[in-house]
Computed example of a mutant assay.
Amino acid sequence: MKITALVVLSFFVIGQAVAQNKESIQNKKKMNTTEEHYTFQLSNKVTRQKVHFKNRYGIVLSGDLYLPKNTDQKLLAALAISGPFGAVKEQSSGLYANQMAERGFAALAFDPSYTGESSGEPRNVASPDINTEDFSAAVDFLGLQKNIDREKIGIIGICGFAGFALNAAAVDKRIKAIATTSMYDMTRVMSKGYNDVVTSEQRTKNLEQLGLQRWKDAESGNFASSANNLPEKITGSEQQFVKEYFDYYKTPRGFHVRSINSNASWTATMPISFMNMPILSYIKEISPRPILMIAGENAHSRYFSEDAFKAAAEPKELMIVPNSVHVDLYDRLDKIPFEKLTAFFQNNLK
Rank of each mutant, 00 (worst) to 15 (best):
M1K: 07
I3P: 04
A5I: 06
L6H: 09
V7H: 15
V8L: 06
F11I: 13
V13W: 15
V13R: 15
G15H: 00
A17L: 05
V18C: 01
Q20T: 12
Q20I: 13
N21D: 13
E23S: 09
K28A: 04
K30M: 11
M31P: 10
T34N: 04
T39K: 11
F40Q: 10
L42K: 11
V46I: 00
V51W: 03
V51E: 01
F53S: 10
N55W: 01
R56E: 13
Y57P: 00
V60H: 12
G63F: 01
Y66H: 02
P68N: 03
Q73S: 07
L75K: 09
L75D: 04
L75Q: 07
A78T: 01
A78L: 04
K89V: 05
Y96G: 00
A97W: 07
A97H: 04
M100L: 14
E102S: 13
G104V: 09
A106S: 04
S113W: 03
E117Q: 12
S118D: 05
E121T: 11
P128Q: 08
P128D: 15
D134R: 02
A137M: 13
G143I: 02
L144W: 10
I148Y: 06
D149R: 10
I158M: 02
F161L: 02
G163K: 09
A165W: 04
K173W: 01
R174V: 00
K176W: 13
I178G: 09
M186C: 02
M186K: 02
T199Q: 14
S200Y: 00
L210H: 09
L212V: 12
R214G: 06
R214F: 14
N222C: 12
S225H: 08
A227T: 15
A227I: 14
E238I: 00
V242I: 05
E244W: 08
K250D: 03
K250M: 03
P252D: 08
F255I: 11
H256M: 06
V257I: 15
S259F: 05
N261C: 05
W266A: 11
A268I: 01
T269H: 09
I272S: 06
I279S: 02
S281G: 06
R289T: 01
P290K: 14
L292S: 08
E306V: 07
A308E: 02
A311V: 06
A312I: 05
A313I: 01
K316M: 12
P322V: 10
S324A: 02
V325G: 12
V327S: 14
D328Q: 03
D331M: 11
D331E: 14
R332D: 14
K335N: 08
F338P: 03
T342G: 08
A343N: 09
A343W: 05
F345L: 14
Q346H: 11
N347L: 07
K350Y: 04
